[in-house]
């Protein structure tokens, strides 16, 4: 941590204010445009709309089919995160608490996936889902997300479990508790902070993902939010007032979640890259 004198403090503060504007202006302009008419966007790029109305939002909501897109995104995100948290915490629990053959091998095998560009292997994923009759289904998408979320989740949860004393679990075992009871009743509740972090990071990843829905989904009724927006963008590529409204609606929920949980996010992000 540097100690700064007055001049340095003021200079850095100004730099950071500039940075703030570089980040905030795009969002600000987006929200401004979302209330304007096409004409106003062209003629007065910096001005506030003259006749405020939510009409753009109504039209964009219907044309982009955002209602069903939100529903799909929610179903896919929540189910896949549930799956990731359950399966990864079970695996992490076994690796952290028990000694068995291939334990280290399994761990390194799993965390190699932390930095694998898994989505490049999408052709075989597509072929496999096709054989299972799961192309253009939300289940297919969910299964892929459970798989691609495993490495990060296992890494964080195992790291967290390692730091919890094992004594309670050992005495429970002496009293005859099965591994499942120890896991469900003792280990999992103690791991809650890590589960929250993993859940949030995964939620953002899944909610934002564009590539897998683009490949796996084809019916409009199953589109997730980013895919719905991109289809809308293609169909109405000149209707910037509607695009602005659709984009605003698609980013507001995730921004709210971020502002509510920014602390958990930040700890998850930094732990994932560097322990």
């Amino acid at each position: 941590m540097l100690r700064l004198n007055k001049t340095a403090k003021v200079t850095l503060f100004i730099v950071l204010i500039v940075y703030f504007f570089v980040v905030a202006t795009p969002f600000g302009v987006l929200f401004l445009n979302s209330f304007k008419s096409m004409r106003e966007i062209y003629l007065k790029p910096f001005a506030i709309t003259e006749s405020f109305s939510l009409d753009n939002y109504k039209q964009a909501w219907e044309k982009a089919q955002l209602g069903s897109a939100y529903m799909n995104s929610l179903i896919v995100s929540i189910t896949s995160i549930g799956g990731v948290l359950l399966f990864s915490s079970m695996l992490a629990f076994m690796i952290s608490r028990y000694r068995f053959k291939f334990r280290r091998f399994i761990y390194v095998y799993i965390i190699t996936g932390l930095a694998l560009p898994a989505r490049l292997a999408v052709i075989p994923i597509y072929v496999t889902l096709n054989q299972l009759n799961l192309i253009d289904t939300r289940i297919g998408l969910i299964m892929v997300y459970i798989a691609t979320g495993t490495a990060f989740a296992t890494f964080i949860i195992k790291g967290f479990m390692d730091s919890i004393p094992i004594e309670i679990e050992e005495s429970a075992r002496m009293d005859g508790a099965t591994p499942w009871i120890i896991y469900w009743k003792i280990a999992l509740p103690l791991t809650k902070p890590a589960l929250v972090v993993v859940g949030l990071v995964n939620f953002v990843n899944v909610w934002n993902d564009f590539f897998f829905p683009l490949i796996i989904l084809s019916s409009r009724s199953k589109e997730t939010v980013p895919l719905a927006i991109s289809v809308f963008f293609g169909e109405f590529s000149n209707q910037w007032h509607l695009i602005a409204a659709a984009l605003s609606m698609s980013i507001i929920p995730i921004m709210l979640i971020f502002f509510l949980f920014s602390k958990n996010f930040i700890s998850g992000i930094t732990q994932g890259a560097i322990k």
């Binding site: 399966f87 695996l91 399994i106 799993i110 996936g113 898994a118 495993t150 490495a151 296992t154």
Partner: peptide, 15 residues
């Protein structure tokens, strides 16, 4: 029981 579910998903759709 604990190891297989995650391992199967990960192997089937990543590895």
């Amino acid at each position: 029981l604990f190891v297989l579910p995650a391992l199967i998903f990960y192997t089937l759709f990543v590895v």
